[in-house]
Amino acid sequence: MEQGFIALDGVSHRYGGQTAGPDNIVAVADLTLSVNRGEFAAVVGPSGCGKSTLMKLVTGLQFPYAGSVAVAGQKVTQPVKIAGMAFQAPTLLPWRTTLENLLLPLEIVQPHRSQLRRRKAEYVARAERLLASVGLDGFGDKFPWQLSGGMQQRTSLCRALIHEPQLLMLDEPFGALDAFTREELWCVIRDLHATRKITIVLVTHDLREAVFLADRVFVMSARPGRILAERKIELPRPRDLDVTFAPEFQAIVHDLRAHIVSARQ
């Protein structure tokens, strides 16, 4: 496993200007974290701890005022195009069908953008395969508002994967779903990670989710966010949902929970 596929070193970031002041919110301070290639990392922490800032720093939507961020061995100085993103809201475009929504990234990102016309059939086939892999075969013609919340979120995941990124950034992607749908999607993500061997960073406040899915869990402190603890999850893969009821699983969750409680104080 390649070390340090994502490497944050002493990163500090604040919104609203470079100098300290009452209006400036220090989002993260002296954040150091490293994720290996192909690893599934989860970041947990109290709300407002700068988890979303972490997402933006890694994908190159924001740049730190101190420290350095590198992805795939390169310092992040512009948006990282090898990343796909999905959020709590599926953010699908209501005027496009599910399939057209999936193709959106290909209309933006190079080299696909300039090949779109030529390779259209191939891209459509790819999108349909992707939909089938998350259990949505045959839903390509439907509009997003004709899909349930869980199906919309699956579509959003597919959209994040369509340009075959090496890195998938997930910001509380299951936060708005009911418990059963959420566990269903855990399995979808687990299988995507297993088959595609991509690096995934999952930001969440659900500890069970983090422990079930991740190889490694990072606990962040309250703002300004730092990494308080790092925990390797050595539960054997492939993991079944039943593992969430096993005592060793519960023990890890309890242990992490204690860190979060102390982080909130």
Binding site: K56, T59, G60, L61, Q78, P79, V80, K81, A83, M85, F87, A89, T91, L93, L104, P105, E107, I108, V109, Q110, R159, A160, H163
Partner: peptide, 23 residues
């Protein structure tokens, strides 16, 4: 425009004009 939508597209290298046209 939802900021998340903007983030998704910007992270892919979308220009302001792209975001305007597509979204």
């Amino acid at each position: 425009i939802e900021p998340e939508m903007e983030d998704v597209l910007k992270a892919l290298g979308a220009s302001k004009l792209d975001i305007m046209r597509k979204v």
